[in-house]
Simulated assay, not measured.
Amino acid sequence: MTRRVAAFAAVGLLPWSVVVSGGETTLVFAFGLVDPDPFLLTTLPDYVFAYTRGLPEYLLAWPLGVCLYVGALASAAVGRLTGREDHRITAGLLVLAGLTQVSFAFGFARQPGRYAVPVGTVALFASAWWYEWPALRATLLGPVE
Rank of each mutant, 00 (worst) to 15 (best):
E132M: 07
E24F: 02
A7L: 12
A126M: 07
V48R: 14
R80T: 12
G142H: 08
Y47A: 04
Y51D: 03
L124N: 00
F31H: 15
L141I: 02
E145C: 02
F108W: 14
G92Q: 08
E57N: 07
L59R: 15
G12I: 11
A6N: 12
R3G: 15
A116C: 08
T2E: 13
L94T: 04
S127Y: 07
G142V: 10
L99D: 01
G83A: 07
G98C: 02
F49R: 14
G79E: 10
P63F: 10
D37K: 00
A135N: 06
A74E: 11
F49I: 01
Q101K: 12
V11Y: 05
G71D: 02
L124K: 12
T42L: 02
Y115V: 03
P63A: 07
T2W: 07
Y131P: 03
L60Y: 03
W133D: 00
L99C: 04
I89D: 14
L141H: 11
A10K: 15
T26R: 09
R3T: 14
L73Q: 09
G71P: 06
F106Q: 01
A10N: 13
P56I: 10
V34Q: 04
R137C: 07
T52D: 01
L136C: 06
P45Y: 09
L141E: 06
E132C: 15
V28Q: 05
S103N: 04
V19F: 01
T100S: 11
V70D: 02
T43L: 03
G113I: 05
G22D: 00
Y51T: 05
L94R: 12
L40A: 02
V34C: 00
L59Y: 08
D46R: 12
A6H: 11
L14K: 15
G71Y: 00
T82E: 07
A105W: 03
G54Y: 06
D37W: 01
F29W: 11
Y131C: 02
R80I: 00
S127I: 14
L55E: 08
T26P: 03
L44R: 15
G65Y: 03
